[in-house]
C-alpha cells in the first residue's frame, strides 16, 4: 500500500453565501499523479489554494506528510512547490536571476548547477540570460516549471500547467513530468481543461462539480461510470447536467 502524503478530510470553503468546496475528503498517495477535473466554478482552484495554505478553509482538515497544514505551514511548503499558467515571474529580471531568487527562498544547495541542469532538462538553457519579459508564453511556462522543481519537491501542485503551450511542447512537458515522477517518486496534483491530457497523465481522477466530489477513480473507471467514450464526453455531460451514473 503506497504511503499517503496528502490527507483531506471534510474540507469546506464558503465565500459568504457561496459554498465553493463542500465537505470533500480524499487522499493522495506517494508517487501518484492525481488529476482534479471539473467545470469552471467546480472548486478545483479553491481546493489547490487551500492545499497550498493561501486560502483558509472554513472547516475540515488538511494533513500533508502527516502534518497539519495550519500548524506546520513552513515545514510543509518547503517540501512542495507550485506552478500555474496564471502566475508569472518578475519581468525585468533574467531567467537565471528569477530562479536564483527562488533558489535562495527555498535554500537550494548548489543552486547554479541545479538551475542549469533543470533549464537543460526543459531545453531552455540558452534562455538563461534572457530577460523574462522577452520570453514567449510557452517559454515562460517552462521557466515556471523549472522554478517549481528547484527545491526537489515531494509534491508538485500544477494548475493548468500546459494551458499556454503548443501541442509539441505540451507533449514534451508531460513526458518530462512523467519521467521526473518515475525517477524521483514525485507526487503530482494536476488540474487541466485538456481532457486528453488528463486521461494521459492521471493515475487517478477526482471529479468535482459545484464544490462536491461526484466521482473518483482511474480515468477508465470514471468513463465507465458516466458511460462516456472519453473524458471529454464525461465532462460535457457533467457540465451540461446530463450525467447519469451507472
Amino acid at each position: 500500500m503506497p504511503q499517503t502524503v496528502v490527507e483531506v478530510r471534510n474540507l469546506t470553503k464558503r465565500f459568504e453565501r457561496v459554498t465553493a468546496v463542500h465537505e470533500i475528503s480524499f487522499e493522495i498517495y506517494q508517487g501518484e499523479i492525481l488529476g482534479i477535473l471539473g467545470p469552471n466554478g467546480a472548486g478545483k482552484t479553491t481546493t489547490i489554494q487551500m492545499l497550498l495554505g493561501v486560502t483558509t478553509p472554513t472547516s475540515g482538515q488538511i494533513r500533508i506528510f502527516g502534518l497539519d497544514l495550519g500548524r506546520h505551514r513552513e515545514e510543509i511548503l518547503g517540501r512542495v512547490n507550485f506552478s500555474s499558467t496564471y502566475v508569472s515571474l518578475p519581468q525585468s529580471l533574467t531567467v537565471r536571476e528569477n530562479l536564483r531568487v527562488f533558489a535562495q527562498l527555498y535554500q537550494v544547495r548548489n543552486f547554479r548547477e541545479k538551475i542549469d541542469h533543470l533549464l537543460s532538462v526543459f531545453e531552455i538553457l540558452h534562455l538563461r540570460d534572457t530577460v523574462t519579459r522577452k520570453l514567449s508564453t510557452g517559454q515562460l511556462t517552462r521557466v515556471s516549471l523549472v522554478k517549481a522543481l528547484l527545491n526537489d519537491p515531494k509534491i508538485l501542485f500544477l494548475d493548468e500547467p500546459t494551458a499556454s503551450l503548443d501541442p509539441d511542447i505540451a507533449d514534451k512537458t508531460r513526458s518530462l513530468l512523467k519521467s521526473i515522477r518515475a525517477q524521483s517518486g514525485l507526487t503530482i496534483l494536476y488540474t487541466s481543461h485538456n481532457m486528453k491530457e488528463m486521461e494521459e497523465m492521471s493515475d487517478r481522477i477526482i471529479f468535482l462539480n459545484k464544490g462536491r466530489i461526484i466521482s473518483t477513480g482511474t480515468p477508465d473507471e470514471i468513463m465507465k461510470r458516466f458511460q462516456g467514450e472519453d473524458l471529454e464526453e464525461v465532462f460535457l455531460k457533467v457540465a451540461r447536467g446530463k450525467a447519469g451514473l451507472t
Binding site: G53, V54, E74, F82, K147, F157
Partner: peptide
Amino acid sequence: LEEIWSRNLLNLFVSPLR
C-alpha cells in the same frame, strides 16, 4: 506593488516565506 505588477505574489506565499 512590484510583486503585484509582476503577478509574483502567489509564487512567494506558496513558498515557506513568512
